[in-house]
Simulated assay, not measured.
Amino acid sequence: MEQPANLQTQTTKPQPKAPTGQLRKAWADLWKMKALYIMLIPCLIWYFIFKYLPMYGLIISFKDYNFSEGILGSPWAEPWNKHFTMFFHSPYFSQLMTNTLLISLYKLLFGMFPAIILAVMFFECRVSWLKRWVQTLSYMPHFLSWIVIYGISIAFLSETTGLINRWITEAGWNAVPFLNSTQWFRSILVSTEIWKDLGWGAIIYLAAISGIDPTLFEAAKVDGASRLRMIWHITLPGIRNVIVLLLILRIGSILDAGFEQVFVFYHTRVYEVGDIIDTWVYRTGLEQMNFSLGATVGLFKSAIGFVLVLGANKLAKKWGGSIW
């Protein structure tokens, strides 16, 4: 007895398709961009060696580490959170957290917008030779070390021999201790970092602006839009994802207030406003050979940064931009 056609259709199970087509397409795409992946290999190796392998050393956060016994041979700390408690109950903890967060937030708030503005100015500039010269001069300080920048700061801001203080004293006022004053120290840190990284940060935004569809600007010109209107409605929305991406990355490293810069600029007179977590770890962990405490603080910073990145990315999704 023959079954109805519709019954045969219902009882026949569809055979799963072999993923060979997808694999071939993925391999073809990989082979097509093989040069880029080959260039990426050294970066991946560097990250693996210097970022992932050192994670093994986080074990000493829960041990009383010493050189003679090594990481595995060192005894476990009793209790296990001994070094965490030591850091959190330190009399300097609140001061360190306050200084670190304030310096990082100041750099984040006052350092991001000037780079965006400079990138827009470069894009809108129609004098090519002026654009090239200003762009070159603006990102050259990025390649200077903080030692050199500190020397430049002394030449301009020194209380006795600084050029600015000479102008101030010649005008009949008292010299200002820019580098030795708790009132000025954070401002000096923020302003010198902005000057150092302004042009370099503008390159990223300028590249993003260059990727905007030029037909949008042409259509806006036809409609009679001014340059300010095009910047507000086309340029800035066009780089919104890049702005959000860089913002998320900087929020994730908000507890890194710039160890090298602060270490070069600070001294005992400005510890109250300039001593951050990393400089305290350097004095306590390296100079006093307390490596377990240093690793503990590093683990604490990484955990906080991880949570901040997740939170910032979730919040950024509401604005239409995120990392993943």
Rank of each mutant, 00 (worst) to 15 (best):
I59R: 13
I59T: 07
L53P: 07
F62P: 00
Y47F: 15
P54Q: 14
P42V: 04
L44R: 00
M33F: 10
Y37S: 04
Y52P: 00
I41M: 04
L58F: 11
W31E: 07
C43T: 12
G57C: 03
W46V: 15
G57I: 04
G57Y: 11
Y37K: 01
M55T: 13
Y56G: 02
I45L: 02
M55W: 13
M39R: 01
I59W: 14
K34G: 03
Y47Q: 07
S61L: 02
M33D: 14
W46D: 04
W31M: 06
L44C: 06
I45N: 00
L36E: 10
Y52V: 15
K32P: 03
Y47T: 02
A35G: 10
K63L: 02
F48M: 11
M55R: 12
K63F: 09
G57E: 14
K51D: 15
I38H: 04
K63W: 11
L53C: 05
W31P: 00
P54C: 11
K63I: 03
Y37G: 02
Y52G: 01
C43E: 08
F48T: 15
I59V: 14
L53T: 07
L58S: 04
K34R: 12
P42C: 08
L40H: 05
Y52D: 11
S61G: 06
I60T: 12
G57R: 05
I41W: 02
L36M: 09
M55S: 07
M33K: 11
Y47N: 06
A35V: 13
K63M: 08
Y37F: 08
S61K: 01
W31N: 08
L58Q: 06
L58A: 03
K34N: 04
W46T: 10
I41H: 00
W46Q: 06
L58M: 08
A35C: 00
P42G: 05
F48P: 00
P54Y: 13
W46E: 12
G57L: 08
L40T: 09
I60Q: 09
M39C: 08
F50A: 13
K34T: 05
P54W: 12
F50C: 05
M55P: 06
L44V: 12
Y47W: 13
I59G: 04
C43A: 15
Y37D: 08
W46A: 11
C43Y: 14
Y47D: 05
Y47S: 04
W31Y: 08
I41A: 03
M33S: 13
F62K: 00
K63S: 12
W31R: 04
Y56W: 07
L44S: 10
P42A: 06
G57D: 13
L40Y: 09
I38K: 10
M33W: 10
Y52N: 07
L53G: 01
I41L: 05
I49L: 09
L53S: 06
F48W: 09
M33R: 09
